[in-house]
């Protein structure tokens, strides 16, 4: 919705919103974006933690020893897949730092 047409409550404290109409809480606007990125990072870390827990449970149930993870070397195809996934991860986690245009 465009900021110009959006209704706002009365008694808005000075500096409560940026020019883009989004709330501002810190004196340095970079901080507001950083918190967003930080929350996304925490979220993605938790997603990974759950995935790792699942993998370890499956792996041990299938008879693979826990230390097999340390000994594993990914092949070329896996490295390529990881690179693509890494770029998507960075976009998702650090997207909040970008300027809204």
């Amino acid at each position: 919705m465009s900021v110009a047409e959006r209704p706002f409550p009365d008694e808005i404290p000075h500096g409560a919103y940026g020019d883009d109409g989004r709330p501002r809480f810190f004196t340095d606007p970079a901080m507001d974006r950083l918190v967003g990125a930080f929350v996304d990072l925490a979220s993605e870390s938790w997603v990974l933690a759950e995935r790792v827990a699942t993998l370890e449970e499956l792996m041990i149930a299938a008879g693979t020893p826990r230390d097999a993870i340390e000994r594993h070397r990914p092949d070329e195809a896996s490295l390529k897949r990881r690179e693509t996934a890494r770029d998507a991860f960075v976009q998702r986690v650090l997207g909040q730092l970008r300027e809204r245009r």
């Binding site: 008694e11 404290p13 809480f25 918190v35 967003g36 929350v39």
Partner: peptide
């Protein structure tokens, strides 16, 4: 209360986290 609390770090952190949690 709102005007008085706005400059405080705890308000800023609570609020910024809540806004982002809502987005998520």
């Amino acid at each position: 209360v709102h005007r008085a609390i706005r400059g405080d770090a705890m308000f800023a952190l609570y609020s910024a986290l809540r806004v982002n949690a809502q987005r998520l």
